[in-house]
């Protein structure tokens, strides 16, 4: 069973095809030969299909933070032994990262959004902040009522599940 990875709201699959004589990984269906060269936080160097790839990375629970080619990424890696469907696709909801109050609803339930569309405005730490959709989809529910307060970690907006392919 392949390992499921999530990045920027997209799902990817990775599978170890062979370890010897070379490490071969299948990523989203295509095979890649990978050769680790240097490992360590200060420098990670690997070869992917003969190309050198330099990056910094740190792992925290299921999330790997990667900085590569001047860009930072967060990749969630799910244990393949978890039953499929137990893990909700990343980016299905907007979660409050701090307590606050919902002060405006820009996109209502049922409306279509594209990634980056402002969905709601919250006031938190005395600052107004627009919260945008993590991916394209349809708003399933605005989970907090207007002018209601919420705690850190509260789900504010839910998107309808992405269509399975």
């Amino acid at each position: 069973m392949p390992t499921v990875m999530h990045m920027d709201g997209q799902e990817h699959q990775l599978e170890i095809v062979a370890r010897r004589p070379e490490l071969v990984l299948r990523v989203d269906g295509a095979l890649h030969i990978v050769r680790p060269i240097t490992r360590g936080f200060q420098l990670n160097l690997i070869e992917v299909d003969g190309r050198q790839v330099r990056f910094h990375a740190a792992s925290e629970g299921a999330v790997v933070h990667v900085r590569c080619d001047g860009r930072s990424h967060r990749v969630a890696i799910h244990d393949p032994r978890d039953a499929r469907g137990m893990v909700r696709a990343a980016g299905d909801e907007i979660v409050a990262e701090m307590p606050g109050t919902l002060v405006a609803i820009v996109k209502a339930q049922g409306e279509e959004v594209v990634a980056g569309d402002v969905v709601v405005t919250i006031e938190s730490m005395k600052l107004l902040m627009n919260l945008s959709a993590p991916r394209a989809g349809r708003i399933a529910r605005i989970a907090v009522e207007l002018n209601q307060t919420f705690d850190k970690g509260a789900i504010l907006v839910m998107l309808e599940p992405a269509v399975e392919t």
């Binding site: 390992t3 990775l14 295509a30 990670n44 990375a57 590569c68 990749v75």
Partner: peptide, 29 residues
């Protein structure tokens, strides 16, 4: 290509996957 590089970099940095890549003998895996 960038996407593949990042996913592989992440996979190679995930302790669980790293263990499976490095240490686990084939039949065990």
């Amino acid at each position: 290509q960038e996407l593949i590089d990042i996913l592989i970099a992440a996979a190679m940095s995930n302790p669980g996957l790293q263990r499976l890549i490095d240490d686990v003998p084939e039949p065990y895996a």
